[in-house]
Each structure stands twice: as structure tokens, then as C-alpha cells.
């Protein structure tokens, strides 16, 4: 159970968490393309999309007001944003996989820690995919 103020914090930061996760996924996707030898990865339009989405998420994060119960979650979210920001900065010199991968991994790990720190933050949208039907009859199988 969480108190009302923490519940409000959860609602406030869910979108931010989702957006940071999406930015991490977008960067990871570009790295897959680069690692597979794609020449288009470095100039892929998704890089711009990721930067814009990160800016929005980071702005939202600065406005969040964590309660004591939410402190650990907030710290991890801030750490995730910081590491993902570093990963994005590394893309400015081309897609050097190793330089981007290190902060990106750290950022995603922080997101995973954040998801474990409070309810309401899912690493994968289980309810819309794997096993969702087990909880919500009529939803989808894996």
C-alpha cells in the first residue's frame, strides 16, 4: 500500500518513466542497426525523436515531488536520466557503440531499479502482451 501523496507521485512520474524507457529502447535499436552494419543508423531520424522525447521526460522529472516513500524511486529515475543523457551526448560524434552502450546500460539498469522500487512501473507492458490474459481474461497470450 502507498499513501496518497506517493500515489500522486506515481501518477506524476509514470509518463516520465515510460518516456525514458522509450528513449533507451530507441537508442538500443539504433545500436542494433549500427552493430549489424547499417550505414543509416548514425543519421537515423529516430535519433532526433529520442532527443526530443528525452528533453520532455527530463523536464517532467525536474517538476516531480517525491515523498519519503518514493525517494529511492526518484533517485533511480534521476540516475537513469543522467546516464541516458550521457548516452545521447555520445551520439553526437557518430554511433560509437561501446561509448554509447556503457551509459545506456547503466541508465536502463537504473530504470529497472526504479520499477522495482514502487508499484505502477512496468519494464514490459505485460498486461497488453505476455501473460496478460492470466490476469485480465480476454487479453492476449504471450
Amino acid at each position: 500500500m502507498v499513501d496518497n501523496a506517493t500515489a500522486a507521485y506515481i501518477v506524476e512520474t509514470q509518463r516520465c518513466f515510460e518516456d525514458l524507457k522509450q528513449v533507451a529502447a530507441q537508442l538500443a535499436g539504433l545500436l542494433v542497426l549500427a552493430a549489424a552494419g547499417s550505414k543509416e543508423a548514425a543519421d537515423h531520424p529516430m535519433l532526433g525523436t529520442a532527443r526530443e522525447l528525452f528533453r520532455e521526460a527530463n523536464d517532467a522529472l525536474r517538476c516531480a515531488c517525491p515523498t519519503d516513500r518514493a525517494r529511492k524511486h526518484y533517485v533511480q529515475l534521476v540516475r537513469a536520466a543522467s546516464e541516458i543523457d550521457k548516452a545521447l551526448e555520445e551520439t553526437s560524434g557518430g554511433l560509437k557503440i561501446e561509448r554509447i552502450l556503457v551509459p545506456l546500460r547503466a541508465g536502463y539498469a537504473a530504470l529497472e531499479c526504479a520499477a522495482d522500487a514502487l508499484p505502477g512501473f512496468e519494464k514490459v507492458a505485460y498486461a497488453r502482451a505476455c501473460c496478460g490474459a492470466a490476469r485480465f481474461p480476454g487479453a492476449h497470450a504471450p
Partner: peptide, 24 residues
């Protein structure tokens, strides 16, 4: 799919970004 806007997120179902990092 990852490049699409948020309203298309259903298309990302079942995907774990951590798996994508492992593929890298």
C-alpha cells in the same frame, strides 16, 4: 516501431529494451 509516437505503443507489446541491449 520504436520511432513511432506514444499512441502506437501497443505495437511494442512483449518487447523488453534490455533484450535489445543484449542483441547489441
Amino acid at each position: 516501431t520504436m520511432s513511432l509516437e506514444r499512441r502506437f505503443r501497443w505495437l511494442m507489446l512483449g518487447i523488453d529494451p534490455a533484450d535489445i541491449l543484449r542483441v547489441v
